[in-house]
Nucleic acid binder design. Sequence first.
DNA 1: TTCGTTACGGTTGAG
DNA 2: TGCTCAACCGTAACG
Length: 420
Amino acid sequence: SVDMQTATQSQAVGFASPLQNPGMVSMMPTSAANNQTFGEVNQLGGVFVNGRPLPNALRLRIIELAQLGIRPCDISRQLRVSHGCVSKILARYNETGSILPGAIGGSKPRVTTPGVVNAIKDYKVRDPGIFAWEIRDRLLSDAICDKYNVPSVSSISRILRNKIGNVLHPNNPLNPNYVPISSIENSTPPQTPSMRPAMYNSPIYNHYMVPPGKPNMPNAPPQLRNSPVACHPFYSHSVTEILGFPRFDQPGIQGTVSNHPMTTDTLTVAPHNGGGYHHQLVPVSVPSVIPKLEEWNNMTAYGVPPPTQVTTVHLNGVEKSSPLSRDVTSLQQSPSSEENRASHPPTCLYASAPTNTAYVTSSAANQYPQPYIPTYAQPGWHQMNGMDATGNPLRPTHHAQNGGLQHGYHKTAVTTSQQG
DNA sequence: TTCGTTACGGTTGAG
DNA sequence: TGCTCAACCGTAACG
């Protein structure tokens, strides 16, 4: 058991139900000194971790109950999840068919890929007076980009400025008034800096560089001969330079693709739900993804029975079967849903509100009327105190690693309980 | 009372 | 390794 503390005091494990103490809403305060962290309790008495998705099991239950005809407001009360969250999850499910949260974190894939940059260069070379918006239109009309990944006009302008250079510069080959060096210089290369035309003394030129039309510079290293780097001083990057590896979108060099980590077939895109972009690459060959601690997972590994799927409910005296049973089974059995299965907390994490008219009657649901017990006050859980049950240091969270606040709960064998 | 919406404080992860 | 930024999260409050 755990000592009870005042409502306004940070509490390590267990606490009085906010339903009994309406003034106690947030359990968030964190003390770096005692290295203890806390989840939060919402106004309904449900436990949540700020910034993190609800456990999949709870999301699934929301969908189940909704499909059984239970109103969102009742679901909200029963599961102690804010109605806004219930509304959001139901809306997402109706829209996408997925119960899973969206992809969190990461960066949006760049639209200015090397191929796009190259195309922009081509357009600019062929028509130095072309406007950025015209380039944008051509990227679309030439099917180099679609409407979802076409760079903005400002991005194109930036590319023109940063990667192609000032076309108004008299020495820029893209300048319409550019005078080819071949017309200034005869075919004999200058032997000393003082003998070269002035432009060759410019920092942007070196002895490897030749103007367009004289591509095969004899004193250039073989790898630079005929290359844009050597031929066009304003071309600061070759495609390979930009890519950092050979292009794989061109025929003939396909064999190099698999040598790049981002293009091997050991990577796939994780299931993503709810539109947006896909950016979570998951190594397929990894046998199991390390589950997120914040997802309150693996309760079953410590002696707590796995949650039983809710298949029927009694709603106003009428028993209803869950149409989601098949989906539940699919979720639990899907090879790609290791994390989903691991994140199923016991049903009793969220006790029914006393006034609920709908109640669950499966074996798991029999746990529902039990007293409210916070996630981390359940057997097998205690709050992060720096050590796990075996004495090993707990994995620090992101913010702990950065010296900031620590959040989340870590699975240990310590048994604590607290009834609200 | 119900529910859609949104500000807010938070986490996450690629770049 | 640490930072930035834009995605996401659930809650609480509003209408």
